[in-house]
Amino acid sequence: MEEHLINNVLLGLLMMTGFAIVRMRSLLAVTMLTSIYSLLSASLFVVLDAVDVALTEAAIGAGISTILMLATVALTTDEEKAPRHKPLLPLFVVVATGAALIYGTLDMPHYGDPMAPIHLHVAPTYLHVTPEEIGVPNVVTSVLASFRGYDTLGEVTVIFTAGAGVLALLGYRTRRRNSQNPEIRKMVVLRVITKLFFPLILLFALYVQFHGDYGPGGGFQAGVIFATGFILYALAYGLGNVQRIIPYRTLRIMMVAGVLIYIGVGIESMLLGGKFLEYRILADDPVTGQHLGIMLIELGVGITVAAVILIIYYGFVSRQHQEPPEDT
C-alpha cells in the first residue's frame, strides 16, 4: 500500500515538474528543474523495482546531462525568447494525440498484474536459466552482458561513435594556463568538500563496476560515476589539474581500448572454438567462464564510457574559455 502511495506521489511530482519546465523561460532554471525531474524519475524507478535503470538515470540524467546542459547554456544564452503567436495548433495536436493514447490504455493490463502477457513469455526463462547457466545473481546484468551481449556491443560502439562525433564537431585545444573562474577559488567549503569526496566517488565507481554482477550497477554506471568524480574535481580546482592526472591523449586511447577489450573477448572466445562472445568457453568451468566474460566486457564498457564523457566535457570546457567571457 505504501508503495502505491509513493508511486502516485512521485508521478504527481513528475507531472508538476514537467509543466513547470514547459512554462519557465529562464533556461538556467529549466536545466535545474530537468535535473530534479531526472532525480524524481530515478526514485520512481527504485519503487518500480528497476534499480539498474534508476542508477543509470541518476548518474546520467541528474548528473552528466545537467552539467552538459549548463555548459551549453553558458556557451549560448540563458533566456528563451517569448513565442510570437499563440501555440493553438500544437496544443490541439497534443491534446488529440493524448486523448487517442488514453483511449488506447483502457484495455491494457492493470499495473502490477502478474498475469499480464509481458510476464508470461521470455522473461521467466531468463529468471530460471540465469542462476544455473550464468551464475550471476543480478538478472539484468546477465541479460545485458551475456544473453544480449551483441546489443551491448552495439551500444558501446554507439557511445564510441558519439564521442568521436563530438570530438570532430567541438575539437579540442590545449591550454597551458590553468584558467579558472577566480570566484570559485574563494569558495573554501566547496573545495574542501570536493577534496574529501573525490576519492570516495572513485571508490564507489569501482564498487559499482565490480559489484554489478551481484547488485545494481555495471560498467556503464561505473564509467559515468568515475567521470563525474573527475568533472567535480575539475569544477572546483580547474580543468588543468585534472588534465595532469588524465591527459587528453590518454582519454583518446581509453576510448578505443574499451571497445577493443569488448571485441577482444568475443574474438578470444572464437579462437577457443566457440561462437563470438560465448563466454562459457573462456574457463574450464562454464559458470566461471561466464563470470570472467561478463567482468571483462563490463570493464570495457566502463572504460569507454568514462573516457567518452570526459572527452565531451573537455571539449565543452576548452571551448568555453576560447573567447573572452561576455557576460561577466
Binding site: A50, D52, V53, T56, E57, I60, G61, I64, S65, L68, I118, H119, V122, A123, Y126, L127, V139, V140, V143, L144, R148, D151, T152, E155, V158, I159, A162, G163, G165, V166, F220, V305, V308, I309, I312
Partner: peptide, 17 residues
Amino acid sequence: NPLVKALASTPIRYPTS
C-alpha cells in the same frame, strides 16, 4: 520483469551522446 529493465537501461545512455 528483468528483460524490460535491460531494454530500458540501454536507451537511457544515448541522449547524453
